[in-house]
Design a protein around this nucleic acid. Structure first.
Lengths: 206, 206
DNA sequence: GCAAATTAATGATTTATTCAAG
DNA sequence: CTTGAATAAATCATTAATTTGC
């Protein structure tokens, strides 16, 4: 049953040039083809890797490798330097770095602590979004239009229909997958291996 | 400021079973531990590579071997068989396949035409969203709630005090681990080269 | 002082919306 | 008009910071 020809899939090639360019990209006019469009997608699968013994000792302190924060496996916890550089880039105009740029950045920031490309991607996404929120809030405060909202409704609101497709209430339907929860008490296991798959996005700007 | 002994190592393990499952699964309650949440992320960069030899290998129906899709810059154009299978899976309950599943599906569908994992991912995303829209529209039409909403606003609404409503839900101390570095290989494509990067998602349910 | 309880930040996912190819 | 692709918005879940009782 398990014949997976997982062969290709792994063709990610990166020809990253050493020169890092924190180039700001022009804001896309959103109607034209800017070629630095990109996206980021990941998916991961826990690999079985049965033969993986817990041999990978977690030496409490590896001399050289400074696994900053993200050591064991929770979320990335950026260092001050990393944040600083990222903010600098942001201020420089970078908003949605493309793959190459992310690669570069990741590599650069890797000098200050463990980091992955996705962290960089997410950072920009989040930072951008949150700056926007902040801006919006501020502008609202400034205007503070004296408005009074009166809402009379003469009937019940539209009723979120059966599934609740509207308004995102909860994932009533998302389903997860297969594996049953068998691993109960053996809380100690070694790290699992993951399978990463990347997908190319279309080269052209959207 | 930085001193954290954050290291416990990860564990979390699971076993996945290779059987093809188009299994539908129970809906998760959204407050509890769901396992195998996943995500998908890709990113790609158009390489300059001016030499474009559009070899147009985009015949949508290669008998068996389909050189992985990445070909020309067009979008995936699913064949009838592919659509059929996908819909079958959808009806079967699949909504957001995880990495393994996507991989399997992609492999399977690859027999009927060029396809990549991201296409599968997007298909499910879109199909789900559009089914939802359809549902919504239908239900709205059915009810056609005669509501009269009058809204005069004389002042700004309460303004959500902070921007982020935070919630405290559960406390699950899950660990995980990571680390994956994409190697680089250089191969000249007749077209553009893409940069692929994949990222792992966290294995444990959130 | 410290460790649990709270609160605030923010990393990571999911869903909704938008853009544009066909 | 349909729908693949991509982005933005919303939300979830953890971690860092702060408070509180002892």
């Amino acid at each position: 049953m398990g014949n997976m020809k997982v062969h290709e899939l792994s063709r990610g090639l990166w020809e990253h040039e050493p020169s890092l360019s924190l180039a700001c990209n022009p804001l896309r006019t959103h109607n034209s083809n800017t070629l630095s469009s990109f996206h980021l997608k990941t998916f991961i699968t826990p690999k079985p890797t049965p033969t993986k013994l817990a041999s990978s000792d977690q030496q409490p302190h590896s001399p050289q490798v400074d696994m900053q924060a993200g050591a064991g496996g929770t979320r990335w916890s950026p260092t001050q330097e990393q944040i600083g550089i990222l903010e600098m880039m942001y201020r420089g105009g970078m908003r949605t770095p493309n793959a190459q740029q992310i690669e570069q950045i990741t590599m650069q920031l890797g000098k200050y602590g463990k980091i992955e490309g996705k962290n960089v991607f997410y950072w920009f996404q989040n930072h951008k979004a949150r700056e926007r929120q902040k801006q919006k809030r501020n502008s609202l405060v400034l205007n503070s239009p004296p408005i009074t909202t009166i809402t009379l409704n003469t009937r019940v609101p539209p009723k979120p229909l059966e599934d609740g497709p509207y308004k995102r209430k909860c994932r009533s339907w998302s389903f997860e997958d297969i594996e049953e929860e068998s691993g109960s008490s053996s809380s100690f296991k070694e790290e699992e291996t993951r399978t990463l798959v990347l997908f190319p996005l279309h080269p052209e700007g959207r």
